[in-house]
Every structure is written in C-alpha cells, then in structure tokens.
Nucleic acid binder design. Sequence first.
DNA 1: CACAACCTTCACGAAGTTGTGAACATCTAT
DNA 2: ATAGATGTTCACAACTTCGTGAAGGTTGTG
Lengths: 171, 171
Amino acid sequence: MADVGDDERIALLRFVERFALVLREAGMAPMPARVLAYALADDADRYTAGDLARGLGVSPAAISGAVRQLVQVGLLVREREPGTRSDLYVLDDRDLWSRFMTAELASLHRFEEAVAGGLEVLGTERPGGRRLAETRDFMAFLHQELTDALARWPAERDRLAGERDGAPVPR
Amino acid sequence: MADVGDDERIALLRFVERFALVLREAGMAPMPARVLAYALADDADRYTAGDLARGLGVSPAAISGAVRQLVQVGLLVREREPGTRSDLYVLDDRDLWSRFMTAELASLHRFEEAVAGGLEVLGTERPGGRRLAETRDFMAFLHQELTDALARWPAERDRLAGERDGAPVPR
DNA sequence: CACAACCTTCACGAAGTTGTGAACATCTAT
DNA sequence: ATAGATGTTCACAACTTCGTGAAGGTTGTG
C-alpha cells in the first residue's frame, strides 16, 4: 500500500479522467489531456516518461506522442538532469495558464485570419460581408481584451496568494 | 449563371470550408461548423433547411442534426412564418458573438466544476492540490474578465459602427 | 379527403483517430 | 565492450464519429 493510500490514487485517476474530458471538449487530444491533468494534480514536480506511463497505466508509446504535443504548445517543459538517462517533464505551474491562454490566443488569431480572407473575397457591402466585418471586429476586440486580462493575471494571483497567507481572507 | 456569378459561389464555399475548419479546431462538430459559416457569409437573412442543404451541397439529413445543435447552443434561432411549411433559421448577427462567447463561458464553468471536484478530493495542502487551487483561481478570474469584456462589447461595436458611418475613419 | 412537399429519424458504410505491441536507437553502468 | 534499461518510431487493430440513403411523420394545398 502506498503512503497516501490506494483509494486516493484511484480518486486521483478519476479526477484526471474527468478533467481530461473537459479539456477534450475544449479541443485537446485525449492523451495529452490526460497527461496534463495528471501532471497537474499529482504531487511530483517533475515526471519522467516512465512515471507518466506507470501513473496513468498506459503504454510508454502513448506518452511519447502526448508529451511531444504538450511540449510543442508550451504547456510542458522538457528538462535533462546531468548524469541521468531520462528526460524530465516539468509543468511550469507559475505560468501554466498564461501559456494555455497564449495558445488560445493563437487559435483566435487563426479565426481572424480566416475571416479576413473571407472579407477579401466577399467585400463589406453585401449582408454576408457585413456580418463578416462585424465578426472580424469582435475577434479583434476579444483578442485585445484577453491580452489585457492576461497581463493583469500575475498581479491578481499574487494578490490572492497574499490574502491567503498574510490577511486570512477579510470576508 | 447566378446573379453574382458562379465564381463567387465557389469562393464562398471555399471560405466556408476554411472558416469551418477553424471552428472545428475550436471544438465544434464539422457539420454545425459548416452551417454556421455558410449562414454567416451568405447574403440571406433567413434560411430554410433546404436552402442550407442545397447551398452547401449536402444531404438534408446532415442539416437536421447540425441546426439542432446550433439552435441548442443559441447560435441559430428557429422561426416559423405563418402560412409556410418550413422552419426558418436565423442568425441573430447582432448578438451572435455574444451568444458564442456565452457558450464558451459555459464551457469554462465546466472547467471550474471539474477542478472544484478535484480539490475536494485532494485538498489544498499537497503540491498537486495547490496547483489545482491556482487553476481554480485562474478560471474564476478569466470567467470574470470575459464576462466584463462581453458587457463592454455592444458599446464598442456601436462605437466602431458610428466611426464608419458618421466620421469616415479619422486616420 | 388525398396528395405533395418538407423535415426528421434510423441504420449502415466509410473515414479518421486512438492507443497498443514490437522492433529500433540511445545511453549508462559494470 | 557488453549488457541492461529507457524512450521513440512504426504498423496494426479497435473504436468512435461522420454523412448518406431510405423510410416515416407532419403540415399545408388542390
């Protein structure tokens, strides 16, 4: 029996599946979603590919592809400790969600490009073109708002952390 | 030959596919994505299911499921003109993207619920729990920011429209 | 009242995706 | 140098999902 009990391990995996499901609904592939959820919720700071495979109970091959994708979008960082023969994957939790949102912003940028392409073809005079123009405006607006919000997050996070530690929630 | 030319029709369908692809990457199913893109970019205000089927060159069966989903999430409104035997589907473009974002906010809410469930099991003391807590904070922060931004959009849209019509782009 | 048009539902064939198992490459310790 | 272990790549099998075609239900028309 593990130090925290097998029940907790099962509960952890249950949560991983649940959270991964939400991530999948948001467009992420199943295995990367599981790996991200697991690395987030389990207690270790760094994971080898083997840790992830054993922890999730899946084949090493599945991990390989998943971490590659996660590293590519910047949600996971690959590290290498000298004198060891395995890569370490680190969830940089201080900036994790900023990174996540940055990826979302890239997706938003693809939206804007697609709409701009449509506008070139359709013009802005006809009803369809006008709708497209408004769509472009909204995307640009949202892009700016999200960028601003993202810039505000670090301060907000520190404020929340300070509240917890220093002045135990005014209420 | 149609009044706007077949070339434009082809260009329209090409745009529809391109834009639908982006929507799919954002998590939308293929056929609803196509229908939404088509209803947005084509010039009609209202479409019957048959219009959509012929316009997109797909079977009526595919339209049926697609519009049901779109109506369910509020992106399309079903109307019925008295004395006609077909439903009309309307893209309420004035509020379209607000509706779209509202749906996104619902997705964000599922995130928050999933994380809250995990926190109940894991607690906030262990490293994994702390990461989860920060995740929850970020989600709540983002939820608030998006809600605020959404409230600002109508005014911003009117400002942009006024700029275009009244004072022809200062520059 | 019967007909015709339109939309919906259902089951099927097809296409794309996912994760596994086995072989291969890389690297460390003996 | 050899052996052992770890991570990666490739091809395959299982699964899920998608869109079509045919049948059924409903509504307005002749």
